[in-house]
Design a protein around this nucleic acid. Structure first.
Lengths: 263, 263
DNA sequence: GGAGGCCTTTGATCTCCCTCAACGCGGCGT
DNA sequence: ACGCCGCGTTGAGGGAGATCAAAGGCCTCC
């Protein structure tokens, strides 16, 4: 079991310890003059495809930005949910909790990703979001987002796309968890990361993992030892090169070939 | 592997064989004078909480209703996606396909459920929906639904709720697939069905499964033999009574106790 | 009503991954 | 600088569930 997450602390703000169920503190850091129009990930994020006038309206809506340090929780299970969050910098994991405390990583989120989509339905978060490194997110108050979406059809459509894509993504993880062998799971995991880094303009073959072996294992339904062993084996076979969290994918074709092999 | 699904056939209409990728035929059966206002599941479905005037507007939007016979596919992977579907009668399964043909059941859907939510993002379906028995669904053309949602905030909110709840549901399945033992999985499956039947006014302790052991197994990440063995064991232990697909839950408390037990 | 096919059950064996264990590394705080 | 703790690696052994196999039941379709 992982130790309880450190309390959320906000840039320039005092660090206040958080208890489970307390709403996430939201501190405006408008001094930084961050705007969607100049944001490096606007083409991946909610404003994708919108014209500058429309983007400006989203900008007004983004009331605050929150900074998290490694380990900080953006929200926890049961927290009231009133906003979506766009990842501006860094990365997070979302985890679902079983009644007995078991933790399942439900997703890893990086630049431009929108998180908090699961909280809209019930009004409170069904999972926990925690920073894997120093991270910054934009807060999108959901009610105001709904209001704006009624005026801006392209925004409405983007919102639906993000929700829908999250469902598709989850279905693919279910396929992975339900019917893939260990080596397939890890290959899918690596290729998925590779693809997402590529889309963001980073190297698709060389990156640093932001999560532990245990967290990877939780995500793909394996134990940490199995993940470690597989990394070693992939390396022996010349598929990848691993040194701790630094990973280099040496043979993408071979990795892709692993997926869908039965025996 | 399961044989290819039989072709979709529509009430009163000629049966046309369908090939993969062909759009789902949609035939208006307005002769039946079915309306949301008088629909038995309107309190579970998209119109939940709306006033009669608003419901009437949704009614206009529902252009067609489709009947499916057991085994018929409502849509398949890759089909263009232009609508959501509300289950009016019967039940369906949705399945995700791996590249090598492996099939993973992603969900079972009954009265009042909305399906097709995964297709909005990409414009084509990422999974296949197939009737488990004679089934009828309402077709909700998505563009018109988006238009109407802009005029009716409550509808907009309901739509978001359905999308969000699907995400929460998927997260819970990921938790199940990623970290639960076989007996836990089956207990969760049975209790989940029980709950959904109860919400729909049916018995929560006595029902007939609409799917095979293999389909159950696919959903919860087990082989059909394991599912069968567990049913037998649950019966021996007095938790349930099974006879083929007829199931009676005898001890809900004990079933719930199984969940979250480590050893 | 009979035949065939699909579904289900149950047994025997196997295997992949988990569990337990030990050790080494590296970063962080004192 | 040292010690500590979290993280990662590797080995040995075990077990939960998969796989292989066979037989019986039930439903559907001639």
């Amino acid at each position: 079991m992982t130790p309880p997450a450190k309390s959320l602390s906000v840039a320039f703000g005092a660090t206040a310890p958080r208890t489970l169920g307390a709403p996430a503190p939201v501190i405006s850091i408008s001094e930084l003059k961050i705007h969607c129009a100049t944001c490096s990930v606007r083409e991946l994020c909610l404003p994708v495809g919108l014209n500058s006038e429309e983007v400006a309206q989203i900008d007004v809506l983004v009331g605050a930005r929150v900074r998290l340090r490694k380990g900080d929780a953006l929200y926890r299970v049961g927290d009231p949910s009133a906003a979506l969050y766009a990842v501006r910098l860094g990365s997070l994991k979302t985890t679902v909790l079983a009644e007995d405390g078991r933790e399942q990583v439900a997703g890893y989120h990086m630049l431009g990703d929108i998180i908090g989509l699961d909280g809209i339905g019930s009004g409170h978060h069904g999972c926990q979001a925690q920073a894997l490194e120093d991270t910054e997110v934009c807060v999108l108050p959901f009610e105001r987002l709904e209001d704006l979406a009624r005026d801006l059809p392209p925004l409405q459509h983007n919102l639906h796309q993000f929700l829908s894509r999250e469902i598709t993504r989850d279905h693919n993880i279910m396929l992975l968890l339900g019917s893939m062998r260990a080596e397939e799971r890890l290959a899918v995991f690596l290729l998925n990361l590779s693809d997402r880094y590529r889309k963001r303009g980073y190297s698709s073959t060389e990156f640093v993992l932001r999560m532990t072996r245990e967290e990877i294992g939780s995500y793909v339904g394996l134990k940490l030892e199995t993940v470690s062993r597989l990394f070693s084996r992939f390396q022996e076979e010349g598929l990848i090169q691993v040194q701790g969290r630094a990973v280099k994918l040496l043979d993408l074709t071979a990795l892709k070939r692993i997926i869908g092999q039965r025996g």
